[in-house]
Nucleic acid binder design. Sequence first.
DNA 1: ATCCAGGTTCGGG
DNA 2: CCCGAACATGGA
Length: 309
Amino acid sequence: MVIDPPIRDKWYTKGENIYLSVPREFDFSHCLRFLNRSHLECLHSVQDQRWRKLLKLGDTMVLIQVEMSSGNLRILPLNTQLTSEEQTTLVSYVWEVFDLGRDLQPFYEHMEQDPILDSLCQAFYGLRLIGIPELFEALSWSIIGQQINLTFAYKLKQRLVRTVGEKFHFEGQDYFLFPSAGKVAEMSAGDFVNWQFSASKAQYLVGIAKAIHADSISKDSLLEMTDDESLATLLELKGIGPWSAHYVMMKCLRRTDAYPVEDVGLHNAIKVSFSNIVKPTKAELDAFGRRWHPWQAYATFYLWHSLLK
DNA sequence: ATCCAGGTTCGGG
DNA sequence: CCCGAACATGGA
């Protein structure tokens, strides 16, 4: 894993705890609210202002608990002691999920003149674009979420994860990892039918798993590309259209200017923000995008957040 | 019952 | 190039 150099002096350990300093524009509660948006989520849990997540560092399963502790993020590995190398990897992961390397000040300044976004920026001050660091997981989730309601999407993901993903049992609870690309690459599209995946979704997932497993597409190579190049590369994958490509660029490649303009949630959020009964037109959406550039991804994410109950 | 869900691909005009 | 259909099911 590539370590962002600025991280190195941002954390220290005390016993088993890791303390990670956070930027000024950071609000853990807002982030948790997004992470906790579905009770059907099977890849992490939120309870009492604490986030729990299962990870695999090398061959080691690590269940972490993340919470605020006097202004820092406290990361506690619950089930095992970590080597310092594992600690470094773990910190990078958390860093990436919460986009801690991002300076949000320019984003907030940019949105000051925007009628919708300015109020959202004030309401959700410190909310970070919650990421999905694993490329295969991000691509898969975008495919699963296509064209179906989110509740059903979570159910499909749950069936895949609980059947194919690795399980770790801790204190009476089961925690799961998203299935590896290698594992899914060995499946046939038919295996998904019992889980109510459409035949095409199943095909796309297996095809993309194979592409990743064969290393014909990788996060590292995508990260080196420009926005346009990574977009074009993602679009070559069967099952990845414009919406999914931008979704993955937002959540995994961390492109602040990705813009899933076809997104229904985005349309609804804009509609609600204007107290309208009509959804925005394509031309209006493009105009919003131009206005939000180069923060289209963050604008979209804040709008998604505004839809949470 | 009908319509819309975190869309994409494919075939036809 | 643009447009409708199919995908599979749940919730309002």
